[in-house]
Structures are given as structure tokens and as C-alpha cells.
Nucleic acid binder design. Sequence first.
DNA 1: CCGAACCGGGTACACCGTACTCGATTGCGC
DNA 2: GCGCAATCGAGTACGGTGTACCCGGTTCGG
Lengths: 269, 269
Amino acid sequence: MSTERSGDYLRRSLELLWGRRERPTRGPKPALTLERIVAAGVRIADAEGIEALSMRRVAAELRVGTMSLYRYVPGKAELLELMIDRAYGMTDGTDAPEGANWRTVLRYVALGTWRMYLDHPWLLQVNLARPVLGPAAVAGFDYALSGLADLDITDHERIGFVAAVDGYVAGCARTHVNAAQAARQTGISDEEFWAAHGPMLEKAMLSGAYPHVAALAEDTFAVPGERLFEFGLERLLDGLETFLARRSGAGGGANGGEASGGTDGIEAD
Amino acid sequence: MSTERSGDYLRRSLELLWGRRERPTRGPKPALTLERIVAAGVRIADAEGIEALSMRRVAAELRVGTMSLYRYVPGKAELLELMIDRAYGMTDGTDAPEGANWRTVLRYVALGTWRMYLDHPWLLQVNLARPVLGPAAVAGFDYALSGLADLDITDHERIGFVAAVDGYVAGCARTHVNAAQAARQTGISDEEFWAAHGPMLEKAMLSGAYPHVAALAEDTFAVPGERLFEFGLERLLDGLETFLARRSGAGGGANGGEASGGTDGIEAD
DNA sequence: CCGAACCGGGTACACCGTACTCGATTGCGC
DNA sequence: GCGCAATCGAGTACGGTGTACCCGGTTCGG
């Protein structure tokens, strides 16, 4: 029975995602649209944070009874899935470089994803079990793959490239986005936070337990998160480039094969 | 007034984190310990997921009234902070290579963090605004820095290295951990999930809208997440190595400076 | 034109975090 | 020894959440 129920739920959710929407002909015209509900959800999450998103809040935004939403969406989880795919789709790819260098493509994807996370921080805060396989997500994945089409690597390595970039972007963005929202979310300003931590950290530094942290210059942590992100991104792309050079070139570039272990590609199981 | 309150909260929270605990001499002996409460919280979150963690649940675990917890912890947020620092501290660093190659140190840190995220998936699901600056976290950061001490790079670049690895690990682990928990969290098995998605995806592939995804070999997605993680990690470390080689070597290695933009380090503001 | 199908949404329940409050317990100062 | 202040455990209650269930009004097919 649980199997049937979950099967139904999945089918319903997928139909919503991929837009199989046929209105029944009987009954009154719906006052709402899936589109409007999802848009309202995104608006609220963007403006007030994911913790402010509740079914009641969405209904209030649309001037509608809370339970009316359940005529369009099976539950909050499905609403979140739809919001995620909508956010994916909101990044316009009009300026996407076509037929460009693989590095240019991956960098474009990474920066676009980064900007998307900054615009919709809740994307990283809602912990969705499985990736949302909606049209927008698949399209983005396809574009990333298009940049790798001409490379002489296996398909496993192709998704290895994409996964590495995606993982790096998500991780960095998570830190950055959380920090940016910190003041609003906790009600504690950066000044208060560091003023409270200052004495504690200073004592910890003087204790000698953390010599390498203590040795850092004072302004070390003043680097803006975006700069850190771009720095690491280029390093990661460099590393992918090294992989390609090793693969195609005659056995190892000047990077010295000795110190770098794990140069193997991704073999099948 | 809000300033005073938040200041107090911060001070209290910090004292809990850094273990400034002086028992008052008056009054009855406490029946609980901070330690026991935090441990119970970690146990519940590990076993049943972060969504199962509630103050009532923790209190029940300790056979204690719900409100008794508030004698030891200001609120749920602070309990989470303590749980996080405890999880950081649970990774024993006894096998940490001392005075090793920078690459060995960073790889060790990355693998340790990865394993920690697998053991405590909720670390990536609780969205904490600001990083938890507890003793364990600072110690881990210090160890990572120790591996970079001898390198001829700026402090900004040092934290650039660490942030890149940390970001990558967190992002990859998030995806992997969510996938691993998916069945339990949604009540939908992988078989059901893919069975439901299969027809939809097949139709999408046949539509021609996603040519590069459609061109992938069938078993492309069968790569275990851990393999993907290790692959990208070595690529990232390769990239950091390239950066060092460029910095110390006589202007650019064999990697060809032309195609790789953004080779600059991190300058101050 | 009637009945089936569909829409909006009110009510209710179980859960959550926690503010407030109480009596019970303890040990210091006298 | 004793009183009192301090500390402890915890019950009650409030406002929030997601959503199951249900009912009256609306609309169109036969």
C-alpha cells in the first residue's frame, strides 16, 4: 500500500514538474495557477528566507485559503521541488557562449550557478533528498556537457568534471550565502558577533594551541567570499586541464607526475 | 535592548562552546550534564535524521522533562552549535601525518571531513548562519594550515587553498549524503524513484532537447559518489600544485599560460 | 435541467520551540 | 542548627507549523 501511495505521489510530482497539465472540463474554473503559487513561494523565500515559507504564508500572499493550495500541490515538499526547478529556469542563458572552449563553458556554468545561489540562497538551505530532475536542471546539465563533447575522455570522466565543478560551487556558495544571511537570520550583527568572539579567540591564539592560525596576518580573513570562490574555481579548472594534458600528451606534463597521486581516471565498477 | 539581549546570548553560547563551566555552589546538584544532552542530540540526529531532533525528543531520550533542557542550553540553536563542534571533535586525529607534504595534509583533511559528513549527515542539513568557531573547528583549521606553512604563498592564498578544499568537500558531500538518505527521508526507494522517472526521462531524451545527455552511455551514472569525490579532489589538488609551480617556477609550467585565465593570486582589497 | 465533478476553504489534530511559573531541593552565612 | 537565597526539575500554555477530513457552492455534460 505504501508502494502504491508513493508511486502515485511520484507520478503526480513528476507531472507537475514536466508540465503535463490537462484541465478537467467539469467544475468551476480554478482561481489559482500552479505558476502563481510557485512564483509566490519563490518571492517569499527570496525576500524573507526559507524559514518564512509556510503554506499559510503562501496562501496569505495569494489572498486565498490555506487549504486551497492543496488543490494544486500535493504538499510542501512538492512545492519546494517546483520552486527549485523554477529557480533553475530563471537564469537566462542568452549570453551563454556557444561552441566555446570547455574551460569557458565550465566557468560560465559555475559563475551562473554561483549567481543563482546568491539570488536564491534557500536553494542550499532546503535539504532535498534527491536532485530535482526538472526540465531546467536537465537543460543546464546538457549545456555543461556540450562544452566537454569534443574532449577525448570517457563519459564517466565527463560527469566527473561536471560534478567537481558543481560540488565546488555549491560548497563555496553555501558558506558565502550563510554568512551573508547571518545578520538577518540571527538578529546579531557582524560587529556584535566579532566583538563577542574577539576576546575568546585572542585568548585561544595566545594559548599556543593554534600556532598556525595565530601566525596569520590580521587582515587575512578580510578577503571577500567571491574572490575566494573565483580563486579556487580557477585552480580547479587548472587541475582539470592538467588531467586533459596528461591524458592526451605523451605521459605527464611538466607538473611532475611523482608527487601527484591518484591520476587515474574513473573506471567503471 | 535587543543589543543587550543578543550580546548576552552570544556570551552564553561562547562560554558553553569553550567550556567555561563553573558550577554554582548553592542549590541541588544538577541531574544532567551539558555533555550528556549534546551527546543525546548527536545520537538522535545520527540515527533518525535532523528532522527527528526536537527538544522533546532529546528530553525523552534522557528521561527528563522537556523544559529541564533549558537549564543547560539557551535554546535549540545553541544545542545545534554544540552538536556541531562535538561532531568536529569526534574525528580523532591520531593518524594525522605530521610534517608531511602539503598535498598529503590537505588530502588527509579532505578525506577526514568527507568521512565526518558521512557519519553525521545533518552537519550539512542544518543551515547555520555563521561558522561554529569552537575549539575543534579551530584545531582542524590549524592543522590544515600547518601543511601550508612552508609554502611561499601569502596568507590570503593560504586560506584560499583551505577554503577551496573545504568548499569542494562540503558541496560533494552534500549531494552524496542527500542521495544516501533519500530513501529513508522520502519513503521512496531508489527503484521506485527511477521507475517513475524512467519513462519521463526517456521521452525527454528522445525529444532531442538534450542531445549531450542523450549521448551519454547508459551506465554513466553508475559511478559511486565516493569515486566522483576522489576524482575531483585530485584534480583540485593538481590545480593547487599548478599554482605553486607557476608561482615558484620561472613563469608558467608546461600547462600553457594562454588558455588559463585568472592565474593571479589573491591580493588584498 | 439535474446530477456528477470539481473548486474553495473552514475546522481540527498532532507536532514544534519556548515563556512563564511553580514547588522541591540544596548549602551558605549566621 | 536554622533560615533564606539560590538553584533545580518540570508542568502548563501560547503561537506557530503541515495537512487530513469534510462540506457547501459552482460549473458543465448528458
